[in-house]
């Protein structure tokens, strides 16, 4: 048995870092400081960070948007995040937030409830998403109308706890998103494990499906859920020749060898480390990080050690 005890990161260390930072700021040229205060430089592309309670600008010349409120003719930030401006509208996009869905986003969700003609799906958003029975692929191959018999066997398709990959189709009037899985790329997930990261770290990419060497497939959900699984060859994907409901809605895993399992665990740990260091995740970054980890020949567990993970982040972000 191995046990490691450590201390919590010391508060005094943080405090001294903060103190030196603020000291640095006051030593800086006062003009630079003055520039920021009236907040006229919205034009500049540099994103500005703000914290709750910070006065952003005057309410007389700007309108308040999400993440702000007005007090005494001042627009004040109510969250920590980046300030954004569209014409006269000031918004603050929070750094740590739930997933804000947009139509066309690829998300990974977990079924929480089976209801008449629909499933409720947890997709890390403020409300549960909805997956209608009419927006999944039904057995029988061709696109067809749903039948009463389909309604009766909804749990054969998805049941509580099942993970699925889907696309945001539309929004309901209450803001909940409606999902669809009407593509052979979408559907139930198996052969792997889920990692959760803050949704802000997943960027919109050309493709959210990609595979790493050594047989690992990755699906980056824009809601911060990431599926790491065994690689399935393009030709062996279900539904290549005709739609096989049995295979698509199967709960059984394929045989996975130890090497693949190790690779999956390694990728999982890499994602965790990158997320902990707030590195935005893209296919390029993950590939680079994975190659670095293999090159360093670090064991899966060792990656989580502080020095190794710092080195990994440094290697990825410098490139």
């Amino acid at each position: 048995m191995q046990i490691t005890f450590t201390s919590f990161p010391s508060q005094s260390g943080l405090r001294s870092a903060y103190a030196s930072a603020t000291k640095h700021a006051t030593e800086d040229d006062e003009d630079a400081y003055m520039d920021v205060e009236p907040f006229d430089d919205f034009e500049s592309d540099s994103s500005r960070l703000t914290c709750p309670g910070e006065t952003l600008t005057s309410a007389q010349s700007f309108m308040r948007g999400h993440g702000t409120y007005v007090d005494n003719d001042d627009v004040i930030s109510s969250v920590a995040g980046t300030v954004e401006r569209v014409n006269k509208l000031i918004t603050v996009r929070a750094l740590r937030t739930r997933y804000n869905p947009e139509v066309g986003d690829l998300v990974i969700g977990r079924i929480t409830e089976v209801q008449p003609r629909r499933w409720k799906v947890d997709a890390n958003s403020r409300q549960d998403a909805v997956l209608m029975l009419s927006s999944v692929n039904l057995p029988g191959g061709v696109q067809r109308r749903k039948l009463e018999s389909d309604e009766l066997q909804m749990r054969n398709f998805f049941e509580e706890g099942d993970l699925l990959v889907a696309e945001v189709q539309a929004f309901f009037s209450d803001g909940a998103m409606s999902l669809h899985t009407r593509s052979l790329k979408y559907g139930k997930l198996r052969n792997g494990q889920l990692v959760t990261v803050p949704p802000i770290l997943v960027r919109r990419l050309k493709s959210h499906f990609f595979s790493l060497p050594s047989g690992v497939d990755l699906i980056l959900g824009l809601n911060g859920y990431i599926w790491v699984s065994k690689h399935v060859k393009e030709s062996e994907r279900e539904g290549e020749e005709g739609f096989d409901a049995e295979a698509v809605y199967s709960n059984r895993n394929d045989d996975i060898d130890d090497a693949t399992r190790t690779a999956i665990a390694r990728v999982t740990n890499i994602i965790r480390i990158l997320a902990a260091h707030s590195v935005p995740l893209t296919d390029v970054v993950l590939l680079e990080a994975y190659e670095w980890a293999v090159e360093q020949d670090a064991d899966v567990k060792g990656l989580l050690q502080e020095d190794v993970s710092d080195a990994l982040v440094a290697a990825v972000t410098s490139g």
Partner: peptide, 8 residues
Amino acid sequence: LSKSEKAY
């Protein structure tokens, strides 16, 4: 957890 996650 889904059945396949448990099995995995």
